[in-house]
């Protein structure tokens, strides 16, 4: 599986490049703040921020808030998946349904999720249901679109093959259509997972729903700039962790896909 010789270099290089770019960014941050390009009041030094984050990580409160944000994210993403995948399969496999729902979908899809926040204050209220709804709403669209594309992209020859062997519609769905769309759905999931995190955090920040976003809101109103930045960094790390997990899932789902096959040496 592993490529010999030159392969190691090409595999190491992205890691080295990533480490270098991160180091450069952190150094720049430190310099900008230390040399007063932006005052430390507005942008605390990188080291200050990380020290703040470290001390926050010693508190129960931080982990409880992180847990709440993760819960809102997971439930939102889960809800979006449960809805978007079956609907995507339906709309993708029927030309009629696809055409019938194109206008409503294109109407709803561009609505910025944040525009729903005022509506949520009035309807679901400032609780986790609003957070889940917002995360689910944002995550729903990329998943729906990817699933629809995946189902439409199923090779008609593969479907005809299954049909010629007397494989029924339901079995065709889970033996041919679904496996063939899995790479698309996995890509949709990776995109949706990031969107869901952003929106879970946004709901907490603007609606005061308990979680990292709410702590940041409180810190900001008390002028605790160091904490605000530490929380931003923490959320960044959470996003990174989610990205790593979901892009690994995506790579596994794509294992058989032509784009992932080892090119001939």
């Amino acid at each position: 599986m592993s490529a010999p010789g030159g392969g190691i270099v090409t595999r190491l290089t992205p890691g080295v490049a990533a480490a270098a770019s991160i180091a450069a960014f952190l150094a720049l941050w430190q310099a900008v703040s230390r040399f007063g390009v932006i005052s430390e009041q507005d942008l605390p030094a990188m080291t200050t921020t990380f020290r703040e984050l470290w001390s926050m990580m010693q508190t129960q409160e931080f982990w409880a808030a992180l847990g709440r944000t993760v819960r809102g994210w997971a439930l939102g993403l889960g809800l979006a998946t449960v809805l978007a995948v079956p609907i995507g399969i339906l709309l993708g496999s029927s030309d009629f349904a696809g055409r019938a729902f194109r206008v409503p979908i294109e109407f709803l899809r561009p609505i910025p999720s944040a525009a729903l926040i005022p509506l949520l204050f009035l309807t679901l209220g400032t609780n986790i249901r609003s957070e889940i709804f917002l995360a689910a709403f944002g995550a729903f669209w990329p998943l729906l679109i990817q699933t629809m594309y995946g189902v439409r992209d199923v090779d008609p020859v593969a479907i005809d093959t299954a049909r010629s062997f007397g494989v029924g519609p339901l079995e065709r769905l889970y033996r041919v259509t679904l496996p063939s769309s899995v790479p698309y759905i996995a890509t949709g999931l990776r995109i949706a997972s990031a969107v869901a995190l952003i929106l879970a955090f946004t709901a907490e920040l603007f609606m005061g729903i308990p979680g990292l976003g709410q702590i940041m809101n409180v810190a900001e109103s008390f002028g605790l700039t160091n904490q605000v930045y530490a929380l931003a960094v923490a959320t960044g790390f959470l996003g990174l962790a989610i990205y790593v997990v979901f892009s690994t899932i995506e790579r596994r789902a794509l294992r058989w896909h032509p784009s992932q096959r080892p090119s001939s040496a």
Partner: peptide, 15 residues
Amino acid sequence: MALVFQEYGRSLMPW
């Protein structure tokens, strides 16, 4: 009846 398709590559499931 069994049918062997002209496009055999596409008629096998790559997954």
